[in-house]
Amino acid sequence: MTVQTPVPFAPGPRNLITDVTGLRVGQAQDDAVRTGVTVIAPEGRAVAAVDVRGGGPGTRETDALSADCLVDEIDAIVLSGGSVYGLEAASGVTARLGARGRGFALGSTPLVAPIVPSAILFDLSNGGAKEWGETPPYRRLGIEAMEALDADVRLGNAGAGLGARAGALKGGTGSASVVAPGGFVVGALAASNPFGSCVMPGSGRFWAAPFEKAGEMGDQDSFPGPAHLPDDPYAETKIGASPGMNTTIGVVATDAALTVAETRRLAMMAQDGYARAIRPVHTPFDGDVVFALATGSRPLPEDTARAGLVAMLGALAADTLARAVARGVYEAETLGASPSYRERYTR
């Protein structure tokens, strides 16, 4: 059998975050409510970090990821719709992991403490049936997403991106990957729901178009950008609707064996992927969050080249996250009053 050598800077075999060895993604959604949950889980545990830059974030367990805290590995990351109600999805994931004995050991007790950081986006104004009273669906959806863990990832109207809206267009869940020199793999997944626009005004060209690989955004070379960029940074944004229906949340991952500090740097550098894919970004109306995971299956050298490799992985993480953001919008389908990219530009 011939073993193919990975091509540097090409997408991985799936072009998904699950090209990173040891990662699986599970998604669940409630079509009537127009909301959903996405879980990213390592087969074992993974070093993790987070970077938060939006002005209106909604998170859980992110303080536990600080380098000066006791725990330096996580059991799962949860991305959810539902605004503050969606934080309950992590409770379902935590319960399911704990029942399976996955988590941080708690001394002599038989119990464990699963470490499940999470972030939410706002999708409460998309027309779905939100009259849930005292029983929001998110804990249930978290459990269902855990039961659906797989290497395949449905894109567009799926999981946390089901009810998302990206500027004037339907948003969605996107993912992408890239093979770095040395065989390292970098992957990203994003639920794209920004206040800003992912498309250059006056064209069908994504801001992230220069980073497209293998026609994943519908062959962006066929959509020339405008001759001049608009002075108005609010063009094609949600400004005509409400500045409360926002936030892009995502995860970048690598199979490199990074320290907590290096994983934090990966998350920080990856935030630039949002800036390459969305205009404007990191606004007071968004809660932009990037988690970073390092599964550790591929060691890094303990010499002066190490910092350069970390910098390269961070740069690729930013590019790959930009692709994931745009791909989520490209793969999305019209839902309610939110038209899809393909309906507007490629019909």
Score class of each variant (00 low, 15 high):
residue 304 T to M: 12
residue 325 V to M: 10
residue 151 A to E: 08
residue 216 E to P: 01
residue 289 V to S: 03
residue 48 A to I: 15
residue 21 T to G: 05
residue 194 P to K: 02
residue 202 G to R: 00
residue 222 S to Q: 15
residue 72 D to S: 13
residue 89 A to E: 06
residue 1 M to Q: 05
residue 144 E to C: 06
residue 10 A to R: 11
residue 322 A to F: 11
residue 267 A to N: 07
residue 80 S to R: 09
residue 161 G to Y: 04
residue 24 R to V: 01
residue 62 T to W: 09
residue 109 T to F: 10
residue 114 P to Y: 15
residue 245 M to T: 12
residue 190 A to M: 14
residue 74 I to V: 15
residue 37 V to G: 07
residue 24 R to T: 07
residue 132 W to C: 14
residue 9 F to G: 00
residue 118 S to Q: 09
residue 328 G to K: 00
residue 219 D to I: 12
residue 59 T to A: 00
residue 9 F to I: 02
residue 98 G to S: 12
residue 98 G to K: 10
residue 253 A to T: 04
residue 186 V to E: 02
residue 253 A to Q: 01
residue 263 T to L: 02
residue 7 V to S: 11
residue 336 G to A: 12
residue 131 E to H: 15
residue 327 R to D: 06
residue 203 S to H: 10
residue 156 G to P: 13
residue 193 N to A: 08
residue 322 A to T: 00
residue 72 D to V: 08
residue 261 A to G: 05
residue 183 G to R: 01
residue 69 C to H: 14
residue 292 A to L: 11
residue 55 G to N: 12
residue 41 A to Q: 14
residue 30 D to H: 09
residue 20 V to R: 04
residue 80 S to E: 04
residue 4 Q to V: 03
residue 60 R to F: 06
residue 100 R to V: 01
residue 24 R to A: 01
residue 291 F to A: 04
residue 207 W to V: 06
residue 245 M to C: 09
residue 299 P to N: 03
residue 249 I to H: 04
residue 261 A to K: 08
residue 64 A to K: 04
residue 294 A to C: 07
residue 148 A to M: 11
residue 27 Q to D: 08
residue 259 T to V: 13
residue 119 A to N: 06
residue 89 A to K: 10
residue 296 G to Q: 14
residue 278 I to E: 00
residue 255 D to V: 04
residue 120 I to T: 15
residue 322 A to V: 05
residue 110 P to G: 14
residue 172 G to R: 09
residue 287 G to L: 12
residue 303 D to A: 12
residue 346 T to I: 01
residue 167 G to W: 00
residue 237 T to S: 04
residue 278 I to P: 00
residue 255 D to W: 03
residue 320 T to I: 11
residue 81 G to N: 03
residue 171 G to W: 07
residue 151 A to I: 13
residue 33 V to T: 14
residue 244 G to Q: 09
residue 152 D to Y: 08
residue 332 A to Y: 14
residue 124 L to P: 02
residue 247 T to W: 08
residue 332 A to V: 02
residue 201 P to F: 02
residue 123 D to S: 12
residue 141 L to D: 09
residue 76 A to F: 07
residue 86 G to P: 08
residue 166 A to M: 05
